[in-house]
């Protein structure tokens, strides 16, 4: 086993290497397989940002979710931003920060401010929850199509995805 040197640098954290080493230290023999795509699609905007209807997507869970329960795509109302969401099972830095300020990962009020300032057309009536899952198969074949249906139903022009 080798250890990373104590870092004093300001380079971005090597999360993949760090996570591999961590799970090996926990005694797991198979490394996590991160999603990767050789070809990346790109859709240009159909209108200027000041005319766009934007959707906001989070990987946080609703407060009603409890650890161990199956997850599914969900939504809430942007006119009533949530005061808290359940992020307990997600891999964020629990030693150095917290997720009590929902705006740090679901910036509904910040976006509403930019709508009021005329910089963004509008924010969709709903915000959306896309579950963080171990199974890429579930994400790709079950959750993304479910999310896509909601986005089409709400006639959004673009999507801001904010993974925790």
């Amino acid at each position: 086993m080798t250890f990373e040197p104590a870092e004093s640098s300001s380079l971005p954290v090597p999360y993949m290497a760090r996570t591999r080493a961590y799970y090996r230290a926990l005694g797991y023999e198979r490394d996590y397989v991160w999603a990767t795509h050789a070809g990346v699609p790109f859709s240009p905007l159909s209108k200027s940002v000041s005319k766009l209807k934007l959707a906001l997507v989070t990987t946080a869970n609703p407060l009603s979710w409890e650890e161990g329960q199956p997850k599914s795509v969900w939504s809430g109302t942007t006119s009533q931003p949530p005061v808290a969401l359940n992020t307990d099972d997600l891999a964020w830095d629990k030693d150095n920060t917290h997720t009590n300020d929902v705006e740090t990962f679901l910036p509904i009020r910040a976006l509403q401010g930019l709508v009021a300032a005329g910089e963004l057309g509008s924010l969709s009536e709903r915000y959306y929850g896309l579950p963080s899952e171990y199974s890429q198969h579930k994400t790709l074949n079950q959750d993304v199509p479910a999310l896509q249906s909601l986005l089409v139903e709400d006639a959004v022009d673009a999507v801001m995805l904010v993974p925790l």
């Binding site: 999360y15 992020t87 891999a91 964020w92 830095d93 629990k94 150095n96 920060t97 917290h98 997720t99 009590n100 300020d101 705006e103 740090t104 990962f105 679901l106 910036p107 910040a110 904010v162 993974p163 925790l164």
Partner: peptide, 9 residues
């Protein structure tokens, strides 16, 4: 740090 991609609390 992971957890606040849209800025500090």
């Amino acid at each position: 740090p992971l957890g606040n991609p849209c800025g500090k609390p």
